[in-house]
Amino acid sequence: MRKFFRRNTAGYVFLTPWLIGFFFLALGPILVSLYLSFTRYDMVSAPVWDGLGNYQYMFEYDRRFWKALEVTFTFVAFSVPLRLAAALGVAMLLDKGLRTIGLYRAIFYLPSLLGASIAIALLWREMFGLNGVINQVLSMVGITGKGWITDPDTSIYTIVVLAMWQFGSPMLIFLAGLRGIPRDLYEAAEIDGTSRFRQFRRITLPMLAPVIFFNLVLQTIEAFKTFTSAFIISNGTGAPADSLLFYTVYLFNEAFKFFRMGYASALAWVLLLIIAAFTALAFATSKYWVHYENERD
């Protein structure tokens, strides 16, 4: 134990700011929200103990809860692979030892800094609106556009595209990972006359597996928590027809529009369990596809 701490001292020192924030700012509210999830609490009067009432209502009666899950799962299923693919694709393009690499890295990272902002969400709403840029471009090539955001069949994909565009942080991590792959592996493959695609499949992907795994877990968690873009684009309502009712948007509305903080806390804990389950699943399957170099086979 002591040895463990001595070995990891530096790590904990670097973690200190986060640890302080966690213990003094986050831990209390987290525990209180667990308590509140078993109560009815309108934020004005005192919470009333309700046992499992919130959870029972959620699973037995609340159609919008299931709808929110459907929307969120759809989003995660599309946005995470697309974002990772975009990140890896751009990272591989940038991994060519260009002299201006720093500039390109910054340019491609930019959307991630902007993407979560309200301004971009507003811009997105205009772009995909009935008279937006997307439709104007489409009309130039003779395609009649439609209200991409106001059609419940397509609205969620506008947000998937927005999410995909924000591939900056996984891209940087992929870049670092690509740099770590020994060049001699590729040289050996070249000599053997292996095709580029085969090199990608047989060298890049396996060597990158730990990084892919890391990105997958992180991005999945991020995707489940998506809020701003959906909230802004749907005017906070999840409209049209609840097609943008992301789990977090629903949670926000329950808490801050309808004053059901107890129920919203229960929703938050269920989301935590869902994310934990997915993370656990990723870890459980990782031993079949993630190989660490310093691991003994």
């Binding site: 009935l130 439609k146 209200g147 106001t150 059609d151 419940p152 005017n235 309502t237 409209a239 049209p240 027809a241």
Partner: peptide, 9 residues
């Protein structure tokens, strides 16, 4: 048309 209608408030 419906595109305008479903934008609430």
């Amino acid at each position: 048309g419906k595109d305008q209608t479903v934008q609430l408030d």
